[in-house]
Simulated scan of single mutants.
Amino acid sequence: MSIIELLASFSLLAISIFFYLTKNNKSRASSKSDSNLPKSYPLIGSSVAIFGNRKRLIQWTSDLIRNSPSATVVLHRFLDDSRVVTGDPANVQHMLKTQFQNYEKGSKSRRALFDFLGNGIFNIDGDSWKFQRQLSSHEFSTKSLRKFVENVVDTELSQRLIPILSAAAANNAVLDFQDILQRFAFDNICKIAFGYDPAYLLPDLPEAEFAKTFDEAAKISSGRLISVFPYLWKIKSFLNIGSEKRLKEASSQLREFAKNIIKEKKQQISKNSSLESVDLLSRFLSSGHSDEDFVTDIVISFILAGRDTTSAALTWYFWLLSQKPRSGEGST
Rank of each mutant, 00 (worst) to 15 (best):
K324T: 12
K147C: 05
N188V: 05
S62V: 11
P38W: 08
F210I: 08
G87L: 08
N172L: 04
R224E: 06
W60H: 14
I303Q: 08
A170V: 01
D293A: 05
S311Y: 08
G328N: 12
N24Y: 00
L304E: 07
L13R: 07
F294Y: 08
V73N: 10
M95S: 08
Q253V: 12
R54A: 13
D125F: 03
G242E: 12
A312H: 03
L7K: 11
T309D: 07
D197W: 05
S286Y: 07
N172F: 10
L145G: 08
R111F: 10
Y103G: 13
A258W: 04
E329V: 07
G52E: 04
S221R: 10
I226Q: 03
T72M: 03
S82Q: 09
K23W: 09
T155G: 06
S136I: 02
M95D: 01
I269Q: 10
Y20W: 06
G106L: 06
Q134L: 15
H76Q: 15
F184S: 08
L135I: 05
S11V: 13
I241A: 05
I15F: 13
Q59P: 01
F257K: 14
V152P: 12
L275E: 12
R326Y: 11
P89F: 12
L314I: 02
L181S: 02
A90Q: 15
Q323S: 10
Q253D: 09
L201S: 08
R110C: 04
L79W: 11
N240V: 07
V149N: 14
S11T: 12
F10L: 07
S327E: 12
G195A: 15
K271M: 11
D176C: 12
H94A: 08
W316A: 14
I121R: 02
D81V: 02
R54C: 06
P42W: 14
S221E: 13
L145Y: 09
R326M: 11
A208F: 05
L13C: 12
D88P: 00
I17V: 07
F210R: 10
D34S: 00
K259T: 03
Q101F: 06
D80S: 04
Q101W: 02
F122N: 07
S166D: 04
S128L: 14
R283A: 13
E156H: 09
G306Q: 00
F19D: 06
F284N: 06
S237M: 07
L280G: 02
F177L: 10
K105V: 06
A8C: 13
R66Y: 11
I15V: 15
S137N: 15
R224S: 15
K26Y: 02
S47D: 04
E216F: 10
W316M: 15
Q99L: 06
S243R: 10
N102H: 13
A8D: 09
R326G: 14
S47Q: 10
K97M: 15
S68P: 01
K271T: 13
S35M: 00
R54Q: 11
D88R: 01
L304K: 05
L43A: 15
E139I: 05
A90S: 15
V228H: 13
K23D: 03
G52H: 09
P69H: 03
A258S: 15
S27T: 00
S166V: 01
A14R: 14
P203C: 08
V152H: 12
Y196Q: 14
Q101P: 04
S282N: 05
P230T: 10
S141K: 15
D279Q: 01
V299T: 07
N67I: 02
K263E: 07
L21Y: 11
N24M: 03
E292G: 05
Q268E: 09
